[in-house]
């Protein structure tokens, strides 16, 4: 369909509904190769859902999402799994296997997909762990890790099969400022050093904007603003301003839809 070789992920007229609720309506979005693209929006707007649409875990109600021109959700299981090796995903929770230690967690993709010798596996795992600064933590169990460490281990694991696209789901949520800074650095460094394309889904505005090349702001199922960080901070659309400045009420209402307050109390 699209011919621009610079575009890795493209959403065309994408709509998605879940239990009769329209989560996305008619979204068009492009993610360029080699860039860090951020998708921001308030909680519950469907940022995680969007990542699942990219990775083919969910199927759009209409329109399409393509990765390198391929619609993952239309693939058969075997091809889907082949395509997914090109995609690394960092889950909000880290999603480390609780019964395996750090080393085995990172080694998991290799053990499943390759027949490498034990020495080779060891070397490759240590290289990835070194890249996230946790070579010394290889014998710890996931329950012994702090939130930031767990995310870095998960990052090493997601990078194990050398993907070209990395999806980060809320990588900074609930982290202290030091950890946050470290994760930011890491994402940026990895993106450059490994020639990745990164998609960061987040509601931490300032932090994400500091490393993103391009930002989409989603609210109410639509893209309400997009551009480079500078362009966005000069954007005057009410919803964008409200989100970027963290105002509690405005175009995105504080109240969940309800009937009239007075009427409700008196009924």
């Amino acid at each position: 369909m699209h011919t621009d070789p610079d575009i890795l992920v493209a959403a065309r007229n994408l709509s998605f509904e879940r239990s009769d609720r329209l989560i996305f309506s008619n979204i068009n979005l492009e993610i360029h190769k080699g860039k860090i693209t951020a998708i921001m929006g308030p909680s519950g707007t469907g940022k995680t859902t969007f990542l699942r649409l990219i990775s083919g875990q969910l199927t759009p109600s209409s329109g399409s999402v393509t990765v390198s021109g391929i619609e993952l959700c239309r693939l058969r299981l075997r091809e889907l799994y082949k395509a997914r090796r090109q995609i690394g995903m960092l889950f909000q929770s880290g999603a480390l296997f609780t019964n395996l230690n750090v080393f085995e967690n990172v080694a998991f993709p290799l053990r499943e997909h390759t027949q490498l010798s034990e020495q080779m596996v060891r070397d490759l795992v240590l290289i990835k762990l070194q890249a996230v600064g946790l070579r010394g933590a290889r014998d710890l169990m996931p329950s012994e890790l702090s939130g930031g460490m767990a995310r870095r281990v998960a990052m090493a694991r997601a990078l194990m099969l050398d993907p070209q696209l990395m999806l980060y789901d809320e990588p900074f949520a609930g982290q202290d400022p030091i950890t946050m800074g470290m994760l930011l650095q890491l994402i940026k460094k990895l993106n450059e050093a490994l020639g990745l394309t990164s998609v960061i889904v987040s509601h931490d505005v300032q932090e994400t904007a500091s490393i993103a090349d391009y930002i989409y702001v989603i609210a109410d199922g639509k893209i309400v603003g997009q551009g480079t960080p500078e362009e966005l901070f000069n954007n005057i659309t009410p919803a964008v301003r409200q989100f970027l400045r963290g105002l509690p009420d405005g175009a995105v209402p504080f109240h969940y839809p309800a009937k009239d307050y007075e009427e409700d109390l008196l009924s």
Binding site: R84, F91, P109, E112, L161
Partner: peptide, 11 residues
Amino acid sequence: DQLESMEMMAV
């Protein structure tokens, strides 16, 4: 999310 992350690692 361990099952989902497994799917994402093509397992």
